[in-house]
Design a protein around this nucleic acid. Structure first.
Lengths: 211, 211
DNA sequence: TGTACATCAGTGAACGCGCGTTCACTGATGTAC
DNA sequence: TGTACATCAGTGAACGCGCGTTCACTGATGTAC
């Protein structure tokens, strides 16, 4: 039966939202069209009045998800510290569906078709730029630091999610938080050169930890 | 037809090896039993004389792959610098099949069954311990640094793989390499505090870059 | 060493299942009068 | 405002397909004599 245009438009949005959450939770291949439709209270057939294929939906979901992220970063409502705390929280580790789409789907994306990959890559490139702008623009190497900062957040979240041991999970999250919060933590080749124990920033870090 | 015991044993090893590479390349769900068998020159039926199920194979592959990694880390044949260079090379980004199993499969693993997850988590915990031992044992925070070091390598590789733009890919790899090679790179909350430009390690880093 | 036979690794047809996608059909919506 | 009808969002059966797994069968292997 036909329904009102307004209701149909709501269905389209609901399908995108449901797909966005389900994809992050179970991956592209782990979610069927029927799953997505059922999550919205429709049957699988209705899906094709809104999207031409599953691939097309994937691409649109990725673009929208990263776009939202970019907007939030550019808005910069909460401070950096708060955002790092939220990103590296146990809550975020456990709540894939509402969490970072890059962390949840980057593993899948490398294997998807070109149009999805391009959508993801283009969007994440814009996201990187937005994050790079967070750092003081005039300092050299701002983009490098933004990238490493992103890499740490991202890597820690994904690794923490791959773990079943809560102790190990917390170790990963806390180590990453410390690295992000305290400037100048030595993670370089300190072992070979024996530089570490004489580094000022290192000593500073240690004294903070004891507190 | 029956074949010799030696040949059968070779088939088992070959199946494990083929599965290990194919899983890393396409993920658990992206590889069928028939694919694995065909890669070794067998038909899908033969698979079940060696393994009870696909799940059992997955668990065994993960355990073996991470075990090999752990052995190599403990052996410590090449230096840290060399290993970082290799890990964050374009070659490694492009060659998933022969690359790091944790980076290739951690995204999938979070969604797999408990026995696979446990196998992965247990093995990666041991791997972390092995990497933590690389750092000078007597310095405090060695494990933290090992974890952050691993998180950076891992995160950069996975992000680089998700990218289609070669320029962006190289930026990620190089930024991570610099963070790993040069101790005391400030990635912390420098923007808010304005600490960065007055940090000694920061100045040191900048002067190195200009060279 | 040669022969007879039980074993069992590998084959390929067959199974049930869930998937993405299509399509004839339904009936409320929205429009023309 | 009320009526008649075309539209089209959603339904659910059906499609072909590939999957993991099973199993009767094959024939070289390996062993007992």
């Amino acid at each position: 039966m036909k329904i009102s245009k307004a209701a149909s438009a709501r269905h389209r949005v609901a399908l995108l939202d449901a797909a966005s959450g389900l994809f992050r939770e179970r991956g592209f291949q782990g979610v069927s069209i029927a799953d997505i439709a059922a999550a919205v209270g429709l049957t699988h057939g209705a899906f094709y009045t809104h999207f031409t294929s599953k691939e097309a939906l994937c691409a649109e979901v990725m673009e929208q998800a990263i776009g939202k992220l970019e907007t939030r970063v550019r808005a910069g409502t909460s401070g950096r510290r708060k955002r790092v705390e939220a990103y590296l929280s146990v809550r975020h580790v456990e709540n894939r569906a509402a969490g970072c789409p890059v962390a949840a789907l980057s593993g899948d994306i490398a294997r998807e078709q070109d149009d999805i990959r391009t959508a993801f890559s283009g969007a994440s490139d814009r996201l990187f730029e937005a994050m790079a702008m967070e750092e003081p623009a005039e300092t050299p190497g701002a983009r490098d630091r933004a990238i490493v900062s992103l890499v740490i957040r991202f890597g820690a979240l994904v690794l923490a999610r791959a773990t079943t041991d809560p102790k190990l999970r917390d170790e990963i999250l806390n180590a990453a938080k410390r690295a992000l919060m305290e400037p100048g933590i030595p993670i370089g080749d300190t072992a070979g050169k024996g530089v570490f124990s004489t580094t000022r920033t290192a000593a500073r870090k240690q004294s903070r930890h004891r507190k």
